[in-house]
Design a binder for these strands. Structure first.
Lengths: 305, 305
DNA sequence: TCACAACTGAAAGATACTTTCGGAGAGGGG
DNA sequence: CCCCTCTCCGAAAGTATCTTTCAGTTGTGA
């Protein structure tokens, strides 16, 4: 990704229709300060911003026209003009529907019921954002690769490690040969064994977790199909990824660390992968699923106390 | 002579919001032929016209830019630019009018986009159900026990094992002594060590997973405070639980196994536990969180902003 | 501390929109 | 039948808006 060498629209994705707030949240980390101010204004008051010209919005946010255009580009539009049109659409939609009801951050002295409500709301929001921002083409490609893979390796560390395990467990249940690695050394050792026809999946919210990138790179170099599940589509990990699945990034705070929403988002992506793969391999997946069900049944019998 | 001497906007009425088609019909008689062609195109395909420039629309209707602008004026807008914005809004409204209606079960031949939408919707539903059904009194009691616990053991197997790991990781980060066990034997071995002032948490969706119930029973018998996170508040596990936190059970199908929604639900409960405990132990938790965050910072490539 | 890269805004350049103005056609009177 | 005038229309000039370039500034890593 040449960063600013050419400031031209790459057009790799169609402009988003209504999931603009989600896009802003997802891309906010990869934005510069000035751009964040613009994005914030846009997400906060679509209707108001739609009424402004480039110059007006630049003045409002205390930046320059160039920055406004850059922000529009980053959000996936060819230029400000198109962002403005989308904004007008969004405003109209909000007008017709009821307001999304923004919730406050979780405070130290919130009563328990409030904490529960806020967490539930935030996670729902994260799910909606993720679904809206998920590239179905990339997802389809990843699914196709998984469905026919000889062998599947999944890399994840820390919180993402659990997600990796989850995906591994699921794929095993439908009869695929999948293994999740949390140990970076073992991960690399295994990655060396991969070749064309195999699939490697890296899960990292930051997109720059070296311990996860390294095995993916190795797998990539050995010809395996590589997939990255990350919240930073511009992060280093995507360098070695044939397919990138973007997770959403919710606003975080001290009481609501990023790990929480990223995990929710990642799990949805994992579920999508799993479900779609199951669809595509239904002939073999269904009996495998049934078998694993069966195998566990006797473990749940009300054991004598 | 009064008609075209000054082709300026009179601005006696605010731009129409959505009743554009009606306005076109009303004003059609007072329009010239060329203008009618423009108005017709606009009313017929708002979305399409919104994508066009003045020149484009002029060409499409076989007229000139001037005529397009005149039409926009007649319809009540200061110029074409504003008509275009209104058109974009109208298009978005029409778009959103089509209800999503993704409540149906996931089918084998659903397109990928539908699968994503349905999964996201189902998980959101699960979260809402869980939040609604969560007993804040029980939650509060569990939180109180955790906040002052000398030592915390968490038991979970299979999919619930990952949730247990997640909770363990989180509690460790705020300086608590917590350990998640997936090995039933080791779990029991550890449970024997517990005593009053310690906390044991069992996570099982079915509420009857023997491998998880057994260590909880041992912990209970040794005087530890016990918590059960389960989807079956009437299951065997609750027998040995001082506090029961109920997770929701969504409808399941072959393509959407129970493990998926139960995991989502369990994780929300875990997040609630963690967040509330962090609140209560904020003095010690905050610095611990900051420290763990700091410790991981250098593991990421310098790409961070 | 220095070198380097990235961010930013001013201003030039390009595009889209608006206005002006003269020509073409319709209708009516000489 | 011809001419005159009025209305309508579009080409082109003019203006606003958007986009790109470029160089100064700021922050960052060695």
């Amino acid at each position: 990704m040449t960063n600013e060498v050419k400031e031209s629209f790459t057009g790799d994705a169609p402009p988003a229709p209504a999931a603009l707030a989600a896009k802003v949240r997802t891309l906010a980390p990869s934005m510069t300060r000035s751009m964040q101010r613009v994005a914030e204004a846009v997400a906060g008051d679509p209707a108001g911003c739609a009424a402004l010209t480039v110059t007006g919005l630049a003045e409002l946010t205390g930046t320059s026209e160039a920055t406004v255009v850059r922000t529009a580009r980053l959000l996936g539009y060819p230029g400000y003009r198109d962002l403005r049109l989308a904004l007008a659409g969004l405003a109209a939609q909000q007008q017709s529907g009821r307001a999304p009801a923004v919730t406050a951050d979780i405070a130290v002295d919130d009563p328990i019921a409030d904490v529960v409500a806020k967490l539930a709301y935030d996670e729902q929001q994260t799910l909606a954002d993720t679904a809206a921002g998920l590239d179905t083409v990339q997802l389809g490609a990843a699914v196709a690769a998984l469905a026919t893979a000889r062998r599947i390796d999944i890399y994840g560390i820390g919180a993402s490690g659990l997600v990796a395990q989850d995906l591994g467990q699921k794929l095993l249940r439908i009869g695929l040969i999948a293994h999740a690695h949390s140990d970076p050394h073992l991960a690399v050792t295994n990655a060396v064994q991969l070749r064309s026809g195999d699939v490697a999946i890296a899960i990292t919210h930051s997109g720059s977790t070296g311990d996860v990138i390294e095995p993916l790179r190795v797998a990539f170099d050995h010809g395996a199909t590589t997939v990255a599940i990350t919240g930073r589509p511009d992060g280093p990990v995507t360098q070695y990824a044939d397919h990138v699945l973007t997770t959403s990034t919710a606003r975080e705070s001290e009481l609501r660390p990023a790990a929480m929403s990223s995990r929710t988002s990642q799990l949805l992506v994992v579920d999508c992968l799993f479900t779609c793969v199951t669809q595509r391999t239904y002939e073999t997946a269904a009996p495998a699923l049934a078998a694993s069900y069966e195998a566990l049944a006797h473990r749940h019998s009300p054991r004598t106390r």
